[in-house]
Amino acid sequence: MAHALNRDTAPDSSTAVAPNRPDFDSEAVWNAREDLAACFRFAHRLGMHEGICNHFSAVLPGYDDVFLVNPYGYAFSELTAAHLLICDFHGNVLSGKGTPEATAFFIHARLHMKVPRARVAFHTHMPHATALCMVEGEPLVFAGQTALKFYDRTTVDRDYNGLALDSREGDRIAASVGDADIVFMKHHGVMVLGNSIAEAWDDLYYLERACEVQCIAMSTGRPIVPVAPEIASVTAKQMREGDRESARLHLDSMRRILDREEPAYRSRG
């Protein structure tokens, strides 16, 4: 299902790297690498991966035009901080060995370029959220407290066109985002956009939990009762007030677990 990036189809793939750029080994960059590697490892632990097909990206700290992304051919459980590639928006790999998966490049490069607020983009086919992309009606019903975290923050990309193997499809997906942080991609999966790696992880985790509970509720055959819109709105605002701090603490807790159990995620070699 995954495809290696064909540099001949990448936009401006011959574009030269701008000279005199600072190196990519700053403490901030390595912290971002370790945070992102931790997200890959935990996504694997929680069954939120699919072979070598899904991808997470983050615009590099201090930059607006280059991003970290996982290389083609690795399972989430294998990835380390050192494995992650630094790419520009033209298909050039500026640091790291290998290339991004083709759809990873065409979706993530165009998202980061066209939606600058999306400093981080996590795309998965995680099972419960993806299941809700396959059924009639709106994917997420705001009936459980966890789901209310996403109230008024979601959109649905209904125009599935197959694999994103060129910049036109990446641009179309970027245009579908609007003001949303969560994109349910019909017949495909989900995209979570965030201002930081911690916030994107927190949303990805709780989105799958909300969708899992909804799938269980739907399986009972009994009607799902949504929360009244006025209560849903107030609750969502309450949740958002503490989201940034809570998200960082959530990611820190994951990293402590990995430091004990899978310290290789931080590898620099």
Rank of each mutant, 00 (worst) to 15 (best):
A16L: 14
D25V: 05
A28L: 12
L79C: 01
N6W: 11
D65Y: 02
H49N: 13
D12F: 10
A4Q: 13
G96D: 02
N92S: 13
Y74C: 06
D12R: 12
D35F: 11
D64I: 00
L85S: 00
D65A: 04
G96E: 03
G96I: 02
H44C: 07
V59K: 01
A58C: 14
F56M: 10
H3A: 06
P61A: 07
Y74P: 00
Y74L: 15
C53V: 14
F42S: 08
V69D: 06
N92L: 06
P100S: 06
D12Q: 11
A32I: 09
P71L: 10
E27W: 06
I52L: 10
V66P: 01
G73R: 15
R7C: 10
A4Y: 07
P19W: 06
P100T: 13
F76C: 03
A82K: 10
R21S: 11
Y72R: 06
A32T: 07
H83M: 09
R21W: 07
G96T: 02
F40I: 08
G91K: 01
S77H: 09
H3Y: 12
C53D: 12
R33D: 06
T15H: 15
A104S: 11
H55W: 04
D65L: 02
D25S: 12
G47R: 01
T103S: 15
A38V: 13
A28S: 13
I86K: 00
P22K: 13
L85E: 00
P11V: 14
R33V: 15
G91F: 03
E34V: 13
A81S: 13
F76Y: 15
L36W: 04
V17S: 09
A58G: 05
S77W: 03
H44I: 03
H90M: 03
H83L: 05
G91T: 06
N54W: 07
P61C: 14
Y72H: 15
D12P: 00
S57H: 02
D25Q: 14
S14F: 10
V93Q: 10
F24V: 11
H55D: 02
C39Y: 09
G47F: 04
L85R: 01
T9R: 14
D65S: 03
L85G: 00
L84Q: 09
L94K: 04
R33E: 05
H90E: 03
I52N: 05
S57Q: 01
V93D: 09
Y63K: 05
A82W: 04
Y63V: 03
T99E: 15
A18W: 03
F89V: 06
G98H: 11
Y63W: 15
G62I: 02
Y63M: 03
P22L: 09
L84P: 11
V69H: 02
H49S: 11
V66W: 02
D64E: 14
H49Q: 11
V29R: 02
H49Y: 09
A82M: 01
